[in-house]
Design a protein around this nucleic acid. Structure first.
Lengths: 146, 146
DNA sequence: TACTTATACTATTAATTCAGTAGTATATTA
DNA sequence: TAATATACTACTGAATTAATAGTATAAGTA
């Protein structure tokens, strides 16, 4: 049970865009460089984020990416869901169609309950807060790089 | 981010053994049959559970598997940790060794925090409770099968 | 002792997923 | 029309997953 590199990169990308939200569009090239991630790979990660309505894009010389909403309106949950698919840890549902044992399966309670907890926790982070955390961490670690 | 079949099967195996705890050793054959899981596959899943000290085994004609501890003393967390490896969602640690950006990475807070929440939640289930839940579900669904 | 039965161990495999690279197409601006 | 940035499609090597298969070993029994 690991978070994929894809999702981790996507989260960093989004925090990065949130930090630069007020400056308008960002080039993927720049995000990739400052995060130390392959631009090509990021250009794939960006697709589901755009599809989920979190990113607005512009092509051409002065193009780039920008968050479609205010950073405070975008949660970690939305980002993970866009990149990782839905957050349920198991395929089976309480619907008996998927598993004959559904109606008397105690272990389902664990997996469903856990899925909910995860969604709840991720929902408690928004990009504005994450940027604040990052700024605080940077100042505490005396790291003044961009 | 899915729970592996291995872990799901292992959890069902453990709940099954917990339900039969008072009857002594269970044959894997019987567990496999009542859970509808390949016996061969279960015989592999059992190994890390035994290694983690949760199962006591006996070979030969009257052999089988039995929980090493009272069901109330075994948590879902132990089981998942034995089967899934450790519960941290990311490899990086706050130790800068693993990632140069550790000191100013806000997204780490999400992954570490989430890992803790997951461990906490899984820790709140023990096998005795799970058996009770299962019995309750069975009676509510009018399913009297073993 | 030989037979049966159940666990223990080791190897193999097909299918899928992951992390990334590569190349081309398209839109926008200068 | 040249330059630049995103958009799209395809491919690939490595790792993981969900099994299956076969053999070895231990324990009780005829």
């Amino acid at each position: 049970m690991r978070i994929s590199t894809r999702t981790r990169y996507g989260m960093r990308l989004m925090v990065n865009l949130a930090a630069n939200f007020k400056n308008g569009y960002s080039f993927l090239k720049d995000v990739a460089k400052s995060e130390g991630i392959s631009q090509k790979y990021l250009s794939l990660i960006v697709i589901p984020l755009k599809a989920a309505g979190m990113l607005t894009t512009s092509r051409g010389v002065h193009g780039g990416y920008i968050l479609s909403k205010n950073p405070s309106k975008i949660t970690a949950r939305e980002i993970v869901e866009a990149l990782e698919g839905d957050l349920s840890l198991v395929e089976c549902s309480r619907d008996e169609k998927y598993c004959i044992k559904s109606k008397n399966c105690a272990t389902q309670d664990i997996w469903f309950g856990l899925s909910e907890k995860i969604a709840e926790f991720l929902n408690s982070f928004n990009l504005e807060e994450l940027v604040k955390i990052q700024i605080k961490k940077k100042s505490e670690s005396n790291d003044y790089s961009i």
